[in-house]
């Protein structure tokens, strides 16, 4: 037995979401149709609006429905610090961790020659323009510690070889509360090479 065509299409549509298979899609669709039509209407409306209106911030390329996002407009953020991240989720993670008061630039990806992703696909021209405006003293390369993230950081750094902007890269470390025995070799050796001075204070 199958549902009517429209219900079937609703089921099928839910499956665009990550982690949603046929069974979950069916539960979601039946829940909205049978128990929560109001919730469903709100969802449909807000989804349409968000998909229409949300774009990239003109300054940092994060997701926003405004031309320039709130964080970029904020006067409390330090304009001399710019942190380059791969995705809006990374930006959020750093914000949640707290302590960073500068601004961001979101690449929405990383350089990956084998997948055909080059510098123009991750907004590096725009980053160049932003840096050319001046006023930035330190560029924090917070791309992922993967080979692609490393290549991206290298490419950006090479572009800035003889500029006066200070470059930094996130340190490698062992996780808080972790045990050395279980840390993978690569992380451990990098953490070892990047060890910090320690005093009894």
């Amino acid at each position: 037995m199958s549902f009517s065509p429209l219900v079937d299409r609703l089921l099928e549509s839910f499956r665009v979401l990550p982690g949603v298979g046929p069974k979950t899609a069916q539960r979601m669709a039946l829940h909205l149709l049978e128990r929560d039509r109001d919730g469903g209407r709100r969802l449909a409306e807000i989804m349409t609006r968000a998909l229409e209106e949300v774009g990239y911030c003109r300054r940092c390329r994060t997701l926003t429905e405004e031309p320039v996002c709130g964080l970029c407009r904020s006067v409390r953020r330090d304009e001399r610090l710019l942190c380059v991240v791969e995705s809006p989720a990374d930006m959020l993670a750093i914000e949640d961790a707290g302590g960073y008061l500068g601004q961001y630039f979101v690449l929405h990806g990383h350089l990956s020659p084998l997948d055909g992703i080059g510098p123009e696909d991750i907004g590096l021209d725009q980053l160049g323009e932003r840096l050319a405006e001046g006023g930035i003293e330190e560029l924090i390369l917070a791309t992922n510690p993967t080979v692609e993230g490393e290549a991206t950081a290298h490419y950006i750094a090479a572009q800035l070889e003889d500029s006066s902007i200070r470059l930094s890269r996130l340190a490698y470390g062992v996780p808080m509360g972790g045990e050395l025995e279980y840390v993978d070799g690569g992380t451990l050796s990098r953490a070892f090479n990047g060890r910090l001075p320690f005093s009894s204070e």
Binding site: P113, E150, G186, S189
Partner: peptide, 19 residues
């Protein structure tokens, strides 16, 4: 064994080899 720690040019050459 341990992973080769590739950075900079060396890393790009590694990508070239893989590609």
């Amino acid at each position: 064994g341990s992973a080769a720690m590739l950075v900079g040019e060396g890393l790009l050459c590694g990508f070239y080899a893989n590609e």
